[in-house]
Structure formats: C-alpha cells, structure tokens
Amino acid sequence: MKAFTTLTSIVAPLDRANVDTDAIIPKQFLKSIRRTGFGVYLFDEWRYLDQGQPDMDCTNRPINKDFVLNKPQYKSAQILLTRENFGCGSSREHAPWALEDYGFRAIIAPSFADIFYNNCFKNGLLPIALDAEIVDGLFKELTDDYALTIDLAAQTIATPSGKTIAFNVDENRKFRLLNGLDDIGLTLQHADKIHAYETERAKRAPWLFREVSI
C-alpha cells in the first residue's frame, strides 16, 4: 500500500449526496479478478455516454462533457470534494480501487458510509469527514485552480485563503496509512493471542470447534 503523508492538489467538486458504490464502479467491472485497471471505468455511467463493458478500451468512448471529471481543469485532481454519505451501498472494494487507480488520494465529505470509509484506508486513500457547513464553505470557495494541502501527520487541511482546517482520524488508521503498513503482518504479530483466544473460546462454545464436514 502507498503511504500517505502530505498532499497538495487541486480539488474536483462532485456536488451530489449519497453517491453509492454502484455509481463509483458499476457491477459489470466487478467481474475482473484483478485489483488494478478500474480507474478508466470510475463513475462509468456518469462519465461516458455509452454503456461500459469490462476490458473495454475507453480512449474513443463518447464523453459526458457536463460531468465534473471530464472538465479539463480537474484532470489532475487528486482530491475529491463531495456531499454526505459518500460510498454508500455495496461493500465492493473496487470502489476505492477505482478512485485510487484514477489518481485520487483523498476524499472530503460531510460523512462516509462505514464500509467504504474502512476500505479506503486499506488502499492508501484518505477519507476526511468535515462538518457539513465547512464542506459547504469549500464548495462555495472552490475555483478552477483551487488547491488544498492535506497533512495527515498534523491532521490539517490548508486552504488557499490561508485557513487551516483540522480533521479527525483514528490513531491506528493514521499510523498504518502514514507508513503504508500491511495490516495482516501487524495482526500476525498477535498470533499467540489468537491461539489463546481459540483455546479459551473452545471451552465456552465447543460446537464451534468440532470437525464437521458437509
């Protein structure tokens, strides 16, 4: 996983609430058995005028010029600014994979759906939840070349007008993201505790530990 430390980037505004993971990456692309290559299909139904298919070459597909990510000024945006309950619905990790593969590293919204929020941290993507009024303020301030600087260690966002906005993130998630650490390796450091739990639990719930084949 890519570590996340600081990021300065222009901001793409996606002014919609309740953006679901079906919209972020439609179901037909979930047939892939790979973890990469989803970026070109990010927001496929909003971004293109035709119907996307897995493994399709997107270079000559008709573009929806009104969709924010198709506007030239946002081409290099690595920060997505959006509205509440972003990432709701399906648990598909293909959603953060697509966002990350497209080039986003941070998403700012008033709130996120729980599973999506959790999935972001496994993929070097930083979801930042801010008060709805602050997000609304950012939407109002936003211009074509509007750039924010995010500092994960300091948990701050610096705006072009010189304001500093603080944000919250769990210590544990922050540590893993700052260092780009593999969760499984860290958990396996507790292997003895997992074994001990199993031994103790088998006394309380022996039926869970019987060898049964069906």
């Binding site: 599973i115 959790n118 499984i184």
Partner: peptide, 15 residues
C-alpha cells in the same frame, strides 16, 4: 460486510 482487503485479512488471521 467487509471489503476484499478484509477478506484476505480474515482468511489469513481469522480476525
């Protein structure tokens, strides 16, 4: 529900 990274995590650690 969990994402694929957690599927892998569950497979590998049961936690």
């Amino acid at each position: 529900g969990i994402g694929t990274s957690e599927v892998e995590h569950t497979l590998a650690t049961q936690c």
